[in-house]
């Protein structure tokens, strides 16, 4: 067992702007404030901030898994254009989260079916497909609220599906197989209730985000830094998402087509977390078509297409918001998008 309390140490939260705030530090999740009535249509600082704990890490082949948990919390599901609040259910004991990544590159695997099977003494406690989620401190991960059978030791098997998202460059042909790892979760309600929980009334609703957590031994969902991306043409903002647009001289291996390669790397403001699982089209020169969801070691998770030539301008239009659930503070952002134009 390797346990870490991500927020208790010299974490990002204290530096995230609680200085001077009168936010209560409590150990009771019951006090979650109501959802703000005047949320901006943009990323905003949530009403409260929760820490989380590592249960255990696991490995299977080249995949690495981390199982973390926190208080059960509300989140918003996104199906198509619909955003629906999922409240905490009375039987929920924890919010369980899983991150899966490639050991060689640290690449987090997005957009794949991920399920958790929870057993205690060989008896099935729960098994669910859990949803991809975006949170301000973690970025992309998989999570769900679960009810447990009280304090004790649980065996949690995380199973990840082979990735069906297009893979290119050094990722071509990789991540195609499913894998699973079983991790131990020693749950006690008292220990959970010791996880940091802070109401943040002074900042709630402000156009800002809780700072990313950086945790030893586990990557977060940050996008590639703009300065490391090749051929960046420009940057645009829509639906409060930052869209970095670039052109590579040639399409990477694994992408059909000749000519150049137009890509968009979409990230959250403030924390630059990858925004996956949206649909978008682009037009430039003679090209008009879909930018395909693609995982590439150089570009990270991005949206791209081979184009014959790039015109004077590149228009990009998101056609479906990112199909990931949202933790508080992200549920009103990245939902409605205006078309963007970047001048070459």
């Amino acid at each position: 067992m390797r346990r870490r309390d991500f927020l208790a140490g010299a974490g990002g939260l204290a530096a995230a702007g609680l200085a001077g705030c009168s936010g209560l530090v409590t150990t009771e999740p019951a006090g979650a404030p109501p959802v703000l009535s005047d949320r901006p249509d943009a990323v905003y600082f949530p009403t409260h901030v929760e820490g989380m704990k590592m249960a255990e890490t696991g490995r299977a082949g080249s995949y690495r898994f981390a199982l973390t948990y926190s208080y059960p919390h509300r989140f918003w599901n996104v199906n198509g254009r619909e955003v629906t609040l999922t409240e905490i259910a009375s039987e929920d004991d924890v919010h369980l989260m899983t991150t899966v990544w490639d050991a060689d590159t640290g690449q987090i695997l997005p957009e794949t079916g991920l399920s958790l099977e929870i057993e205690r003494d060989g008896e099935l406690v729960s098994q669910e497909v859990i949803y991809p989620m975006l949170s301000q401190p973690m970025g992309f991960h998989y999570g769900a609220n679960f009810g447990l059978d009280g304090d004790g030791t649980y065996e949690v098997t995380t199973a990840v599906g082979g990735v069906s998202t297009r893979r290119s460059g050094g990722f071509a042909g990789r991540f195609a197989d499913p894998a699973s790892a079983t991790m131990q979760f020693d749950f006690s309600a008292a220990e959970r209730d010791g996880i940091r929980y802070e109401n943040t009334p002074d900042r709630a609703g402000e156009r800002a985000a809780v700072e990313p957590m950086s945790m030893e031994g586990m990557p977060n969902g940050r996008a590639r830094p703009t300065e490391e991306l090749p051929g960046v043409v420009g940057e645009a903002t829509s639906g409060d998402a930052r869209v970095v647009v670039g052109v590579r001289d040639t399409p990477p291996e694994g992408v059909d087509g000749d000519g150049r390669y137009l890509y968009a790397s979409v990230r959250t403001p403030y924390n630059a977390m990858v925004i996956p699982a949206m649909a978008m089209t682009a037009s430039t020169g003679d090209f008009e078509g879909e930018l395909v969801r693609t995982l590439d070691p150089e570009l990270g998770y991005h949206y791209g297409a081979a184009v014959d030539a790039v015109g004077d301008a590149i228009e990009i239009e998101p056609t479906l918001p990112p199909q990931t659930a949202r933790h508080e503070g992200y549920e009103t952002a990245f939902v409605s998008f205006d078309p963007m134009e970047v001048t070459v």
């Binding site: 957009e111 497909v129 069906s164 990112p322």
Partner: peptide, 24 residues
């Protein structure tokens, strides 16, 4: 339905994809 996950991100590997979310 792997082909359909490429048609729209709303249809995911196991979510909104028939009954795959509910059977193991």
């Amino acid at each position: 339905g792997t082909d359909l996950t490429g048609v729209t991100p709303a249809v995911r590997q196991r979510v909104n994809n028939g009954i795959l979310e509910y059977v193991f």
